[in-house]
């Protein structure tokens, strides 16, 4: 994970049109964007699309990022908004609630992963939105409690508690689903 100074420096270079800076930022934050998008849209393929679109939006509006060192937190706000819009339009398009359709479990996962992927996605439903974000950012993208707290507007201890609860609930739900 990049430090705040590195991020600030990269944002500055990106604003001057530096392609390497954009690529480094994309590589550093795409998975976090995906994690937050997945917590909202709950379909991996949709989450990838939302993450990419949100990242492009953030890059296009880079001048609006008032604190370049906090680019990550700012990006995640854009991802959340984009994901919520996506869910709304998907609901209108498909005319159904939040249940996961069959294609949500397939996607690009290797065959052996499909069942586990299905269970994971169903288990994530048992969490609150904040718990989902915390566990996905921590366990998928390696964010620290401090980084989670800064990006999500939580204290470090609060972030730790959310992670604790999220893992416990996920594990219990996964055991239920497996049995």
């Amino acid at each position: 994970m990049l430090g705040q100074r590195d991020v600030e420096h990269l944002v500055g270079r990106a604003l001057r049109g530096d392609a390497d800076a954009f690529s480094t930022l994309a590589a550093a934050f795409l998975r976090a964007a995906y994690a937050v998008a997945l917590g909202v849209v709950r379909r991996p393929a949709d989450a990838e699309d939302v993450a990419q679109e949100a990242l492009m939006t953030a890059f296009e509006r880079l001048e609006d990022c008032r604190e370049p060192a906090r680019f990550g937190g700012w990006l995640l706000q854009i991802v959340r908004r984009r994901a919520l819009t996506w869910v709304e339009s998907r609901g209108r398009r498909e005319g159904r609630g939040g249940e996961l359709p069959e294609e949500a479990f397939a996607g690009s996962a290797p065959t052996g992963d499909v069942a586990l992927r299905r269970r994971l996605l169903e288990a994530l439903d048992a969490l609150t939105p904040t718990q989902r974000e915390v566990v996905l950012l921590h366990d998928l993208d390696g964010w620290t409690h401090a980084e989670l707290g800064a990006a999500l507007g939580l204290t470090e201890n609060n972030a730790r508690q959310h992670l604790f609860q999220a893992r416990r609930l996920l594990r219990a739900r996964l055991e239920d689903l497996a049995s």
Binding site: F22, S23, A26, L62
Partner: peptide, 14 residues
Amino acid sequence: TAARLGGVAASRRR
């Protein structure tokens, strides 16, 4: 994917 996004963003920015 990350490289493609970075490239597109850089070209738009320029």
